[in-house]
Design a protein around this nucleic acid. Structure first.
Length: 933
RNA sequence: GCGAGGGUGGUGGAAUGGCAGACACGCCGGAUUUAGGAUCCGGUGCUUCGGCGUGGGGGUUCAACUCCCCCCCCUCGCACCA
């Protein structure tokens, strides 16, 4: 066949050495993909600049931590982003699509300890490797904008903003109980503690430590962060809800309870004559019968001073404070307390209330003091039962027998009518709540209050590999910010990573020792570094002008590109990164750097990639006799773990032999102990679960286009992908089929001049031509609609349908061969154009072979021809009693009467209506007729 | 416990209240090939061939995967928040 050589001739002059498709040529992604990647790089195809004449679109995927190699989750995230980016470019948008590195973090230090490689070196070699991997995927990033957050050119601006925040009181140092992870050797923010465990080490309990630490005053922005969750329609409701819950706003009141005897605060030397509580049920104040303080409450020990309770209170407070979070939040955590020896007065009734310290009261929330109303709060009820304290019901449920203290078996926590509440008896609790709040305010005994669950953001980390906090401590001048001209405070190199004496930076004397910028005297640097979530709170702004050296970014560029129009990333950042970034944006706004309120207009959270795993389940709960001396299972020698479950005492369980690779599994039994393995459990891919599939292997074997296509086809983007190797093969075969179809027909359509495609009246052709023409335009319409809604999987299904139509069409069979060939070419070109965002290498290659000179990257996205979408006939569905009994081809403009007549006279319909009275006929224009008998 | 999101063939998944199962994987049969993780053609929800089928039960409707009520199960988030 001559098509092969013809194609070769057409492109022999092309400088990259395109050889052309041949009939017998196989689809070889390993050859064409690197070729086009080189082409894009040489032609600087993906570089973008500010262009006020063009509509901008900022498309961003969450940048990766350079852990070493790309995993499937990255590839999914970035494939989604790349399809959208390429699609939007084709739609004529000026698309900013950058990539960089979230380069500070613990793994670099851990690697340094294990392999004696400096973190900087480890990180940069990882970046080099992963950058190559990203390029090998064909992603359309403007690589000129790349940076790593560990570059001093980046974090110097972060330090500058820190200094400005410090000046405004938005960054401050305070002593407090903080979360400490022994594995990380550092403190954690509240957001980084999951059910009492470290977010990075799900088996490491977080301990409480009393330390002086740096915080960002995110609570100043709590209300605004909350309000804006109502004004982000482009975000998934789920994420907004998680943020709202995290912020945790509640409305209530402060109430002052006078102490029977005033005490003196040992620190401030001030007289303290009252306990202030926060409550959302101020309507139950008449029912308060005792007072509960947190163990950390400053009054707890002061009140017991000099009483016989003093030693007991001290002992209790010490113990509770040392207990870890998981223990304190377990369901079966015994409600315990100790009497302080002091009393206060119920501010409304004057009753004498004993003051307790209770282990369930949190210093973190409200004022750390709670008025205890056992009749209407279950915790107080339980506590009162244990310590035999009085119960006074004050809210009477409607339509229920009267509450009697002695008969209550649980607290009544709902609304009702006030009783035992002086002149307020008979009021609705809800109305009384407003009334009493007003009165408390007028009488100076409290007043309305709003409380948030969210705490300030703890940003100190006692680690080396992070951005240094730009603070100097001077004996004379105190805590001094590093002046702007001295920034950046550069992280010293060649540091031995060693945590035996706290942060490694502490041990770098030459770096720590410095001069006070104010008085010039001897001073020492802060050795804490910033939480790495600080870097990821503003990197998207830096991408707008990554080399700016006069400020964190150039205002014109940020003004043009920001906010990010579409952000894409994992849902695991719903409250961490996404909340911090929103906060930081508002800070930048208030510092005058930016003019917008929110960084991300639309958010897409993509699902995980999961795969079946094989785990040895272990031997379950063990009795003491079944545990060997070295704390292993006596049956099989596997490690033993402690299990804490709601409402149950602590149990010891055999952990089993962990996970196995599929190829290690024989007959579904554990190789070590013979237990049947837990199979069929689909879990997030991870090394430890031995269920990872390395995208690099797949790219080597099947090509980047196949991997991209499969990840987008396997499921809608927000759902999990259940990995299966056959599915990837299917994607590969589909691309092979397109390739073969193109190469086999190239000779027939190659020489058709481009302009002639639109000149034919394909709708006047043979029926199969009309059908194909319609299919082409239907595909355009469907793929467009679906891409606009991120429904990549069904968009690809529409492309497959187009392919199926095209492959069933013979361009040489009918009479008007030039027209049929032109139509075929139109179909092929449309397919290539529409698939370009998904599989750009394949698209470029075929497009070039079809004789085009330009890259597909800026190809105009096609619009469907309305004439092609119009139909003359449609298939009328004929139902009897709602069941389909027949179909008929009917002109689209047939009147209702005609549709009715067709239905009633239809043979199949009559078979079901024969001898029965037709009760009703429903006619749905252009759809169906339902005959009811 | 509270909140959110889900339950559709052997599998992943499609369906503005209007033909359930698009598209693909897998499987079955056939063709072709020296071979193939290749290609092509046909079939594929179940069925006693009447029908029955979208977790179960009820309801609204001419018509329900879709709307309403009750229940079950799964996933995720939060969880002593006063």
């Amino acid at each position: 066949m001559k098509s092969g050589r013809g194609a070769e001739n057409a492109f022999c002059h092309f400088h990259l050495g395109f050889r052309g498709l041949r009939v017998d040529a196989k689809y070889k992604p390993a050859e064409i993909e690197p070729k086009w990647q080189k082409f894009w790089e040489e032609h600087r195809t993906f570089e973008v600049e500010v262009d006020p004449k063009q509509e901008k679109f900022y498309l961003l995927e969450m940048f990766p931590y350079p852990s070493g190699r790309l995993h499937m989750g990255h590839v999914r995230n970035y494939s989604i982003g790349d399809v959208m980016s390429r699609y939007l470019v084709m739609r004529g948008k000026n698309v900013l699509h950058p990539m960089g590195w979230d380069a500070f973090g613990l793994p670099a230090e851990n690697a340094a300890i294990e392999n004696r490689v400096p973190p900087a070196k480890w990180t940069s070699s990882n970046i080099d490797y992963m950058r190559d991997q990203l390029k090998r995927m064909g992603y359309s990033y403007d690589w000129r904008r790349e940076f790593a957050t560990c570059d001093p050119d980046y974090y110097r601006w972060e330090q500058l903003i820190f200094v400005k925040m410090f000046a405004k009181g938005l960054a401050y140092k305070a002593k407090s109980f903080v979360n400490w992870c022994d594995r990380c050797n550092t403190v954690l923010a509240n957001e980084q503690v999951e059910q009492g465990y470290c977010w990075r080490h799900s088996d490491t309990l977080v301990r409480q430590k009393d330390l002086e630490q740096w915080f960002f005053k995110i609570t100043d922005y709590a209300e605004e962060l909350l309000e804006w969750t109502e004004k982000l329609p482009g975000w998934p409701e789920k994420v907004l809800l998680m943020q709202r819950n995290w912020i945790g706003k509640s409305r209530g009141a402060y109430i002052h309870f006078p102490l029977e005897r005033a005490v003196t605060d040992p620190e401030t030397r001030q007289a303290l004559d009252r306990i202030i509580v926060y409550t959302t049920r101020q309507d139950t104040v008449y029912g308060a019968t005792f007072m509960s303080l947190a163990a950390e409450h400053p009054l707890a020990e002061v009140l017991s001073k000099g009483t016989s309770q003093e030693p007991a209170v001290r002992k209790f407070c010490d113990r509770v404070r040392r207990e870890d979070k998981i223990k304190r939040s377990a369901e079966d955590y015994q409600k315990e307390g100790v009497f302080t020896g002091a009393y206060c007065r119920n501010t409304m009734t004057g009753a004498r209330l004993p003051v307790y310290v209770a282990n369930f009261v949190l210093m973190d929330y409200g004022t750390g003091a709670v008025m205890a109303v056992p009749a209407h709060d279950q915790r107080d009820f339980d506590f009162a039962k244990v310590y035999d304290l009085p119960i006074i019901p004050v809210v009477q449920p409607a339509e229920r027998p009267e509450l009697r203290a002695g008969e209550m078996t649980e607290a009544y926590e709902d609304e009702g009518l006030m009783i035992n509440s002086g002149e307020y008896n008979g009021l609705l609790s809800e109305a009384f709540r407003r009334k009493i709040t007003e009165r408390l305010l007028q009488e100076g005994r409290g007043g309305p209050a709003v409380n948030y669950r969210m705490r300030d953001w703890l940003i100190s980390r006692q680690r080396y590999w992070g951005a240094p906090i730009p603070i100097i401590y001077c004996e004379k001048c105190g805590t001094v910010a590093v002046p702007e001209k001295d920034l950046p405070v550069v992280l010293p190199q060649d540091v031995e990573i060693n945590f035996s004496a706290g942060s490694p930076l502490k041990q770098v004397e030459s770096w720590v020792k410095t001069r006070c910028p104010r008085c010039g005297g001897e001073a020492r640097r802060e050795t804490d570094t910033m939480d790495t979530f600080v870097e990821s709170s503003w990197y998207f702004e830096r991408f707008c002008s990554p080399r700016c050296d006069t400020g964190p970014f150039a205002p014109e560029e940020v003004g043009y590109w920001m906010p990010v129009d579409q952000y894409i990333g994992g849902v695991e950042h719903a409250v961490l990164h996404l909340l911090y970034a929103r906060f930081w944006t508002k800070v930048l706004r208030d510092l005058g750097y930016v003019k917008f309120d929110e960084p991300f207009t639309r958010l897409l959270t993509q699902g995980m990639v999961i795969k079946e795993s094989f785990a040895c389940p272990g031997h379950g709960e063990l009795k003491p006799a079944e545990i060997a001396a070295d704390n292993t299972c006596a049956q099989c020698g596997a490690p033993v773990a402690e299990r804490i479950e709601e409402g149950k005492p602590l149990v010891k369980v055999c952990k089993g032999h962990g996970y196995f690779f599929p190829e290690e599994v024989k007959a579904g039994k554990c190789r070590k102990c013979g237990l049947p393995l837990q199979t069929g459990r689909k879990e997030k891919m991870s090394k430890s679960k031995k269920n990872v599939v390395d995208p690099a292997d797949l790219v080597d074997r099947l090509g980047a286009d196949t991997v991209r296509l499969f990840l987008l086809f396997a499921a809608p983007p927000d759902k999990e992908i259940d990995w299966n190797d056959e599915g990837v093969q299917g994607a590969f075969r589909f691309l092979n089929r397109i390739w073969t179809l193109a190469s086999q027909n190239l000779g027939k359509v190659k020489d058709i001049p481009a302009g002639t495609l639109v000149k034919h009246d394909f709708l006047a052709g043979a029926p199969d031509e009309v059908a194909l023409f319609r299919q082409i335009h239907q595909a355009i319409a469907e793929v467009t609609q679906r891409l606009d809604r991120f429904l990549f999987n069904t968009a690809i299904a529409a492309l497959m349908e187009l392919y199926n139509a095209l492959s069933g069409f013979d361009p040489d069979r009918g009479e008007d061969r030039p027209r049929r060939r032109a139509l075929f070419r139109l179909g092929l070109e449309t397919l290539v154009t529409l698939i370009n965002p998904f599989t750009p290498h394949l698209a470029e290659e075929i497009w070039r072979e079809l004789g085009h000179r330009e890259s597909t990257f800026r190809l105009a996205w096609p619009t469907p021809d309305p004439k092609a979408l119009l139909r003359e006939e449609f298939e009328l569905v004929l139902q009897v009693n709602g069941k389909v009994r027949g179909k008929a081809q009917v002109p689209v403009d047939a009147p209702e009467d005609e549709l009715r007549r067709i239905a009633l006279t239809h043979e199949r319909v009559r078979a079901y209506t024969e001898g029965k009275a037709v009760k009703k006929v429903i006619v749905v224009p252009r759809k169906l007729v339902n005959v009811v008998v």
